[in-house]
Each structure stands twice: as structure tokens, then as C-alpha cells.
Design a protein around this nucleic acid. Structure first.
Lengths: 203, 203
DNA sequence: CAAGCAATATGACATGATGTCAATATTATA
DNA sequence: TATAATATTGACATCATGTCATATTGCTTG
């Protein structure tokens, strides 16, 4: 007999789901700090203690709600990079930077909650740090490849350059999330890519 | 009659000072989140309510404690910038970036508390944002100057470039604060400056 | 110099959130 | 149907915050 057909297990799953949906609403409406478990269980029509049966707390709830968004970040980080010229590199890098920044627009609401939560929860902060390191590791490799191909300046420490480049992207991401950017994603991506590629690549 | 000689006003000042010192100890020991008013007033040997006579709460306390550090950031932001060549520009920029990053090492302990507090307190977050905007405004002007002098690429939006450049610096600052950097401040400053200057300046 | 006034300090209290747990309800199994 | 296993519940203990009526201390004036 499958667990899914187990009636009481099913009930448990439904409870969990109700709570997740209520939590999302509350997070979006109140932000991470102001959101409380009480509001969520009320919206979900379940008992207070039930929330702690299914999740460890606010943080845990948000992490589950963010899982698919985080997955998409990981996918962007994995875009392949094998340029044969400086121009080709610029195209790929521009495309990747833009995709990264567009995530901010596409998921603005949840990302706003996420940003707040990074400040409050070490758990969530670690999740974002993992994404960051994934990107940086990938960019480092890309730079090393370009250096080996004679496309990029060899005298630069590729790890340090990678971090710097990602940091620019990340901060613009948060600006867009907060809706504090005063230029289009396209122009931002174009500009920062231009400086980066000219600064790193030869010719 | 001067206020300073007023004995009860003097007592008030001493109380305030005792609290500030105790608060600093508690912040450094516990971090911003875990630090409580109770711990501070205990260390300072004053009553609970007294803390709220002198300050509005934890946030306010930390802001006062950070005032001189913030002042020093503003001073760094005001370094003058009138280069006559790309090389001269690189020297000045490198120097400024290094001074900025060295602040992280010099004030690491308090900056660690500050970083945490940025996540928790809108007030403190705004203080840091003000510093950031000050730097960006200044860098924007510098770039515009370099563009007018024919030293920098005119086709780039100077405000966007300025933000991107500051973001790299800022994120490295926090890495250094957290002691998570794996290169010397000198090497970091040298590397990011090299990419930035080559990317932005002509020749 | 004494009485009254103003500035300071105090801690008990109300509030609001958290996480736990013993008790209860529901479903499965024998 | 009895019993075991699983799921739900809300009352409770805990802890930090900010407020406020009261107490204390020092100044000032008649």
C-alpha cells in the first residue's frame, strides 16, 4: 500500500500544503519580520502546534517556499561557456547577466521576502551563500578557461575577478528586487558587461 | 551656569556613557540579534527603564556607537580625484579602494555587528545606504570628469558604472569584515582596480 | 535653609511572539 | 472491536520589548 493512499498521511500532506499556501500569503503581505506563525495557522485553519509538527519555524517555511526559485538560480549558474573570441564571450556573459537580473523582476515579491530573511535567519543566509558560491565557482572556471585560450589577461587572479564580477551582478539584483533601479535590466546588463569584458579580455 | 557643571546633568551624561560602554561590550560579545537591553543595563549598573530615557532602543544605541566609523567612511568618499592620465587614475582609484577595504580590517568587530544590524533594523540599513549613495554619487562624478577629459569611454552610462564598481568594493568589504576573504586587501584592491580601470578607461 | 520644582532613574507591568508538550482525535491494523 | 500508530491541538512557560506611574536626586527661590 502506497503512503499516498494512506488516508491519514494524505490528511497530513493537505495540512502541510494549506499551511504553505497561507504562509506564502502572509509573507507577501507582511514581509518576513512581521509575519507570524499565528497569522499563518489562522489563515490555514489549523492549530498553532501543528505548524511546528510540519516545519521548524518561519525560516523553514520560507526555505521550502523558495526552493523552486533557488533551483532556477542554479540553472542559470550552469549555462555553458566556451567562447572562441572576445565578442562571443561578451555575448554569452551579457546573456547570463541578463538572465540573472531578470530573475529579480520575475520573482520580485518572493525575492523581497527572501532578502529580508537573509538578514534575519542564518539558515536562509546560508542558502543564498551557497548560490553565490556556486556562481562564483562557475565564473572562476570560465575565466580560467578564457585565460588558457589566450582570450583573457593572465596576470589577473581569476577567483578575485570572478567574485568582483558576481558582486556587481548580485547587488544590482537586489536593487531590482527592491525596485530601486533607475535603468532597464537590459541597460544595466549591457553596461556592467561592457566594463567587465573590456577589463578582463584582451584586445 | 554651564550645563556641564550642572551636577545632575553630569550624572545623566555619565549614565549615558556607562550604558554606551556596556552596550558596546554586549554587542561585541553577543552580536546584534542576541544582545538585549537587560544585559546592557546590568553591565552598566542602571535600571531597565533608564536605557529608554537615553536611547530609543538597541538600534539607536548601535547607531551612536557607529558614528565615528561612519564619519571615517564619509572622509574616504571625499578623496579628491583629478587624474591627468589613465595611470594616474589607476593610482588614485587603487588607493581609494584600498582605504575603503582597510576600514573593514581596522573596524572588523564593530562592522560585524553593524552588518548584522543592517538586516534587522531599517534605521541602520538607511544609515549604510546613505554611505553607499554618497560613494556612488562621488564615483559617478569622477567618471563623468574622466569622460569629459577624454580619459574614459563616453559610451558608458557613468551612473551605472559607478554603482557596479562600488558594489564590488562593498561586497569585498563585507567579506573582509566576516574574515571570509582568502586574499590580502592589497591583492583584492589591485585586482578589482585593474579590471575596472582597463574596462572603463581608454587605451 | 527649607520647601517646592524639575530633571533623572527605576522596575513592575502589559504585550506579543516563540517553541514545547501532554492530552486528544483520527485512522490503521490485528 | 480493541489496540497501536499517527496527526492535531492549544494551553503554557519563556523571553524580550517599550511604557509609565512612582521614587529619587539635585537645583532654586523666597
Amino acid at each position: 500500500m502506497k503512503k499516498t493512499e494512506d488516508k491519514r498521511h494524505l490528511r497530513s500532506i493537505i495540512t502541510r500544503q494549506k499551511l504553505l499556501e497561507a504562509a506564502k500569503e502572509v509573507f507577501l503581505q507582511e514581509g518576513f519580520q512581521k509575519a507570524t506563525i499565528s497569522q499563518m495557522i489562522k489563515k490555514a485553519n489549523i492549530g498553532y502546534g501543528t505548524a511546528y509538527v510540519h516545519f521548524e519555524g518561519k525560516e523553514d517555511l520560507l526555505i521550502v517556499l523558495m526552493e523552486d526559485v533557488m533551483e532556477r538560480f542554479y540553472e542559470i549558474a550552469e549555462i555553458s561557456f566556451l567562447p572562441k573570441s572576445k565578442q562571443e564571450a561578451e555575448e554569452i556573459i551579457h546573456k547570463q547577466a541578463k538572465a540573472f537580473l531578470l530573475m529579480a523582476e520575475a520573482e520580485r515579491d518572493m525575492m523581497q521576502v527572501f532578502e529580508q530573511a537573509i538578514g534575519f535567519s542564518a539558515l536562509i543566509s546560508d542558502k543564498w551563500k551557497a548560490i553565490r558560491e556556486k556562481f562564483i565557482q562557475r565564473i572562476s572556471m570560465d575565466i580560467a578557461y578564457a585565460q588558457q585560450s589566450g582570450l583573457a589577461r593572465v596576470e589577473l587572479n581569476h577567483v578575485l575577478v570572478a567574485r568582483g564580477w558576481f558582486f556587481t551582478n548580485e547587488m544590482y539584483l537586489w536593487e531590482i528586487v527592491r525596485d530601486e533601479h533607475h535603468a532597464s535590466v537590459e541597460e544595466i546588463a549591457k553596461t556592467i558587461t561592457a566594463v567587465y569584458v573590456t577589463g578582463l579580455y584582451i584586445l
